[in-house]
Amino acid sequence: MTTPVETTVTVAPGVRLWTERRGDPRAPALLLVMGASEPGLSWPDPLVDRLAAHHQVIRYDHRDTGASTRVFDEAPYPLAELAEDAVRVLDALDVDRAHVLGLSMGGILTQLLLADHPDRLRTASLWSTFAMSTTPLRHDDGATTPVEELPGPDEELIGWLSGLTPRPDLEAELDQRVEKWRRMNPGPLPLDAADFRTREERIIAHSGRWDDSWAHALADQSGLLRTDQLAANTVPTLVIEAPADPVVPPVHARHLDQVVGATRLVTIPGLGHAPVRRALDPIADAVLAHTLA
């Protein structure tokens, strides 16, 4: 395994993003796109290492996360701009085409890449994310359910998350972050609290602060639908279903499998919204089977 290479890249005037490359630089690139308000270090190292045995793995901090520029308060941007940032990261690192794995909001951004920049993708993998399409879900009996009637996130969880504020000291902040991940993982796969605490300690040290930004939640979410483009997609796309996810109910994975062209659906039993250690090998196996096919 090669030594990880960290650098910052400029994606817009006054906006610099932290990036890390791991693995053989001659291997096909795999870009990891994280969810809302989460930095690149939220991708667990054991998963990154498994993927980096076959790819040059690139993870990065979105703007307003981690060690990247915090800019939203002075210069608000639409959520779709984060997808363009992903392309700019590839440009800055001289990557012509990449495999892309997106989690949660990162899966939304990956769909925008499929629709707007398919020439930059070798494959796509969508994990626990909503569809950027207005096509209704078709059921086995022939009935359909409009997108707006599909179940949303667990209301109790969303209520708890909306009340989060930075804690007055580090230990209390770490307790709160571990509790967040526990609530996002209500299924049978165990959450190792010590593992997530260590990960969050590293993220805070990397960021130099522990006040999370609400930029991604506040960003303009208009103009995200790509119904026709996703239906016509030809980039091989893996849809990862998380049956125990309280943020993105698993029916949305089936919806993605229907509305996005060239998809294949895989289910990780017990998987929630948290990347717990017990799920990392099955996820890596699924992604690598897809990217190396």
Rank of each mutant, 00 (worst) to 15 (best):
residue 1 M to F: 10
residue 88 R to P: 01
residue 172 A to F: 02
residue 124 A to E: 09
residue 265 L to V: 08
residue 259 V to K: 01
residue 286 A to N: 09
residue 279 A to D: 02
residue 159 G to K: 07
residue 93 L to R: 13
residue 166 P to D: 08
residue 245 D to G: 09
residue 122 R to S: 14
residue 244 A to R: 05
residue 254 R to Q: 10
residue 162 S to K: 14
residue 92 A to K: 07
residue 144 T to V: 13
residue 288 L to G: 10
residue 161 L to S: 01
residue 20 E to G: 00
residue 34 M to H: 13
residue 51 L to I: 03
residue 236 P to A: 11
residue 280 L to Q: 15
residue 163 G to K: 13
residue 279 A to K: 02
residue 134 T to E: 15
residue 144 T to Q: 09
residue 51 L to M: 02
residue 227 T to V: 12
residue 199 R to H: 08
residue 164 L to K: 09
residue 245 D to T: 11
residue 261 G to F: 02
residue 123 T to D: 14
residue 242 A to Q: 09
residue 255 H to S: 03
residue 24 D to V: 08
residue 275 P to Y: 00
residue 208 G to D: 01
residue 256 L to S: 00
residue 183 R to N: 06
residue 135 T to Q: 10
residue 130 F to W: 04
residue 164 L to V: 10
residue 24 D to Y: 06
residue 130 F to C: 00
residue 45 D to N: 01
residue 184 M to Q: 13
residue 264 R to K: 13
residue 8 T to K: 12
residue 280 L to V: 09
residue 8 T to C: 08
residue 283 I to Y: 09
residue 271 L to K: 03
residue 95 V to Q: 03
residue 100 V to C: 13
residue 252 H to S: 12
residue 90 L to E: 04
residue 23 G to A: 04
residue 266 V to E: 13
residue 102 G to S: 05
residue 8 T to F: 10
residue 283 I to Q: 08
residue 212 D to G: 14
residue 256 L to R: 00
residue 163 G to N: 11
residue 226 R to V: 12
residue 192 D to P: 02
residue 258 Q to C: 00
residue 129 T to Q: 04
residue 256 L to Y: 00
